[in-house]
Design a protein around this nucleic acid. Structure first.
Length: 562
RNA sequence: UGGGCCGUCGACUAAUGGUAGGUCAAGUGCCUUUGGAGCACUUUGUCUAGGUUCGAAUCCUAGCGGCCCAGCCA
């Protein structure tokens, strides 16, 4: 049944489906599939495909299968299958059918026999190198293989013996007999089967010949009666071949539609290159919070909602472009602003002593947990004579436009008191290591009864009750908008940002965080959104910075410098 | 330079022959016990040249520019 179309701006794929449904094509049925190869972990680019495949089907009351495209046993592993399933679920989608291209190996084999019998496929004894040479080039047509016109009987015999394991890897292939002069290289007698004596993660040693993508994919779609087979633009040239197999076999006519793949600035979305980063230990693993993998992004503290909103906002088209990373960051901030509890944390502590505050006194101040959500309630934060504030929140000589603490100036300690800086203590290097202030007891909670204003409110943590934590600050993994843009002889690793990870070993947090659970997401007031990393242990919290808050002062500073 | 696809604000994307709109970014102001959030406002765009039409981002022609394809990878 057709659901009502979305009120959001449409896209060309939705338009196609809408028309098909209206025309009652395939009885108005909508069936899609998400077809990852289990040879790596999913990344944000896959999230786009997932949202499109599942989202569009959902919109029309259709179904989506998760199908592993496991036709290359040399690269694929069960470990990846499990991670992919978990990632799809985490993103918020449930598949209808769970399939593997390898489920169809028997059917595919039978269809190959049929194509041979129909004179549409042949066994080729050429080496890979010879096949390449016969293929021609972009501007020159290819040449027929000398084995192209073998008899059906000989082809059948040879193909059966390929399957039986009589021939070594690479010695023969099965090819579709199409047109060696086609301007579309994919149609120059593409390889359908290759000999690979490799153990498959699901079929074990049953097969020693494996179908190629082009032969397996459309047929798998057809078997699942997929109505709309959505994939990325680089498969556009394969569509004629996709259709050719379906037509020759006379099977269910799935339709392939291509859209632009996701590109993000300062980000690489290539499984091969991501794998390289992991293998060369440029990152801590697939789930390093700097990685664009779903595992990395999740660990970084992103929410599935933020990712889905982001994907929905960027649209679907056929233009090749690159989304600004700021767009993604906007959607995490938007989501976390609504749901993250506020706490106070000092990353780089500077000691403050309130000289006129009683020595051994501690007060419990009321603090709002989330100004965006009254139901989040309030909590108590201890206040005492010795505090820590952020080093950045004090300047002995404040620049123009700097409103925070400096000698003689009064500021508000959030949920605390107004304090005024009276003097500083310096070390031998002349660095300020302690700031002495007085407080106004009448400003408890942060309001002055006389109505006087302060220009700044800063966060703080009581020294005696603060808990220690490690905080990991992340910057872009690459220094260039396009990490692939490199000088002659270099590769993308030359653009790795040496400052992409900064570890702050001794941040001080308000005590309410003592029992923060792994995965918990917080806003450290005025700093950004942070989440508890799985590296945390009892008594040793580790936080990741998901994303910084927008910072008008920092932006003004940057502008001034340039 | 064979073939395929694509050109709309800085980025992404709508407008389906009839008011070039939205989001992000940037900027200005308001507000603020987060220099956060929010609110208001603003700047900037149809690749070029012709043609068809009352009317063109949209259709046609020719240019220009970009992306993809020569795996027994997907």
């Amino acid at each position: 049944m057709a659901a009502s179309p979305s009120p959001a701006p449409s896209n060309f794929i939705r338009d196609i489906i809408l028309e098909d449904v209206k025309a009652n094509k395939h009885d108005g049925r909508v069936q899609t599939r998400f077809p990852p190869e289990p040879n790596g972990h999913l990344h944000i680019g896959h999230a786009k495909a997932i949202c499109i495949d599942f989202g569009l089907a959902d919109e029309f009351g259709g179904h989506t299968n998760l199908r592993f495209d496991d036709t290359n046993p040399e690269k694929e592993e069960t470990e990846y299958v499990e991670s992919i399933k978990a990632d799809v679920n985490w993103l918020g989608f449930q598949w209808d059918g769970l399939f593997y291209a390898s489920d169809y190996f028997d059917q595919l084999y039978e269809w190959a026999i049929k194509l041979i019998k129909d004179g549409k496929a042949y066994v080729d004894d050429l080496t890979a190198e010879e096949i390449r040479k016969h293929r021609g080039t972009l501007t020159e047509p290819g040449k027929d293989s000398p084995y192209r016109n073998r008899s059906v009987e000989e082809n059948l015999n040879l193909f059966e013996r390929m399957r039986a394991g009589e021939f070594p890897d690479g010695s023969r292939v099965l090819r579709a007999k199409i047109d060696m002069t086609s301007p579309n290289l994919n149609l120059r007698d593409p390889v359908m089967y290759r000999i690979l004596h490799a153990e498959h993660h699901r079929t074990g040693n049953k097969w020693c010949i494996y179908p190629m993508y082009d032969y397996a994919h459309g047929e798998s779609d057809s078997i699942e009666r997929v109505t709309h087979s959505l994939c990325t633009l680089e498969f556009e040239d394969h569509r004629p071949l996709y259709n050719w197999f379906i037509q020759q076999l006379g099977i269910f006519p799935s339709r392939q539609i291509e859209f632009d793949r996701l590109n993000l600035t300062y980000t690489l979305l290539s499984k091969r290159k991501l794998l390289q980063l992991v293998q060369e230990k440029r990152v801590s693993g697939w789930d390093d919070p700097r990685m664009p993998t779903l595992g990395g992004i999740r660990r970084r503290g992103y929410t599935p909602e933020a990712i889905r909103n982001f994907i929905a906002s960027i649209g679907v088209s056929k233009t090749t472009g690159s989304i600004e990373l700021a767009m993604l960051e906007h959607f995490v901030r938007e989501d976390l602003n609504r749901r993250a509890a506020r706490v106070m944390a000092v990353l780089r502590p500077l000691k403050v002593v309130i000289d006129n505050y009683p020595e051994n006194q501690t007060e419990q101040m009321d603090a709002v947990n989330n100004p965006e959500d009254a139901s989040a309630g309030t909590r108590k934060v201890p206040f005492s004579r010795a505090l820590y504030i952020e080093q950045d929140d004090f300047r002995e000589e404040p620049p123009k436009g700097y409103f925070r603490l400096s000698p003689g100036r009064e500021v508000r300690l959030r949920y605390g008191y107004f304090i005024t800086c009276k003097s500083v203590v310096k070390n031998d290097e002349g660095e300020v290591i302690e700031v002495h202030c007085t407080y106004d007891p009448a400003t408890r909670g942060g309001n002055a009864p006389d109505g006087r204003k302060v220009k700044s409110t800063i966060h703080w943590v009581s020294a005696a009750t603060a808990i220690d934590a490690e905080v990991r600050i992340y910057e872009n993994l690459f220094t260039k908008e396009n990490p692939n843009e490199v000088a002659e002889g270099e590769d993308f690793t030359a653009n790795l940002n040496p400052l992409s990870l900064e570890v702050i070993a001794n941040a001080r947090l308000e005590p309410s965080l003592a029992n923060a659970a792994v995965g918990g997401r917080y806003q450290f007031e005025r700093l950004g959104y942070f989440c508890v990393d799985p590296d945390s242990a009892q008594g040793k919290l580790v936080f990741n910075r998901t994303v910084a808050l927008k910072d008008a002062w920092a932006r003004a500073g940057k502008k001034g410098k340039s």
